[in-house]
């Protein structure tokens, strides 16, 4: 359907890699899919824009491979690489906030795009929660980058996550309420974002039109 590679934002790769990815999309059997998955993860960890959309290219490759050979080599490698990165997430965060934020964005995007029989992948539910709950800790809330990432992910996949495990969503939102009320030193921007996400979930994962006006009218100006 979308053979236009523009859609997958792969222009930022070098030429060889672009060719590799284009081939993976059309004829996954003819390329080293382990390499492809690594290329995609590596780029996602570097490039915040790509990490937000990488789920789509992954989805397409998974579909193509399943259709071509009923295989799932790409998905397996992708998930196992994600797991490997997950294990080292605290070091990653210590080393580079940006990479950590990219990682969370990417895993959430994969959670959003890759489904098993139209259901979220159970294996990712707890890891995704672990990441989001990490972002809701006091030290992370001091960084606007991380707050931004947290609320963005919740906007995108909060509802799905809650459906598969509402308990942990409650846990996460207890943290968010507490922080909103009690945490010292939170920037007003962070408080605004937290307030919005609290309202967003309270409204059944959408904002009322008045709330929307409140949060977004200034931007329109």
């Amino acid at each position: 359907m979308e053979s236009s590679t523009e859609d997958y934002r792969i222009q930022s790769f070098d030429l060889d890699t672009q060719v590799l990815l284009k081939t993976a999309l059309k004829d996954p059997g003819s390329v080293n899919l382990e390499k492809v998955s690594n290329v995609i993860v590596d780029q996602s960890l570097k490039d915040q824009v790509f990490s937000k959309e990488a789920g789509r290219i992954c989805y397409t490759i998974v579909q193509a491979e399943a259709k071509q050979s009923n295989g799932n080599v790409f998905r397996r490698n992708l998930l196992n690489r994600l797991q490997q990165e997950f294990k080292g997430r605290e070091e990653t965060r210590g080393r580079s906030l940006q990479e950590w934020v990219c990682y969370v964005t990417f895993i959430c995007n994969i959670f959003d795009y890759l489904k098993v029989n139209n259901m979220p992948m159970v294996a990712l539910v707890h890891p995704v929660y672990d990441c989001l709950i990490r972002l809701a800790q006091a030290d992370a809330l001091m960084n606007e980058e991380e707050v931004d990432c947290l609320v963005l992910q919740l906007h995108r996949i909060g509802e799905q996550l809650e459906k598969v495990n509402s308990q942990r969503m409650d846990e996460l939102f207890f943290l968010l309420r507490d922080s909103f009320l009690l945490q010292e030193g939170l920037s007003s921007m962070a408080r605004l974002l937290l307030l919005e996400i609290l309202e967003f979930r309270a409204g059944g994962w959408m904002l009322s039109s008045t709330a929307h006006k409140y949060y977004y009218s200034e931007i329109a100006d």
């Binding site: 397996r76 490698n77 196992n80 797991q83 098993v116 029989n117 294996a123 990712l124």
Partner: peptide
């Protein structure tokens, strides 16, 4: 029993179970 299994295998088991 997939506690020790990697994510890839967990998802495959999951998929197989649903199929």
């Amino acid at each position: 029993c997939s506690h020790q299994a990697d994510w890839g295998s967990q998802v495959e088991d999951d998929e197989m179970r649903r199929d």
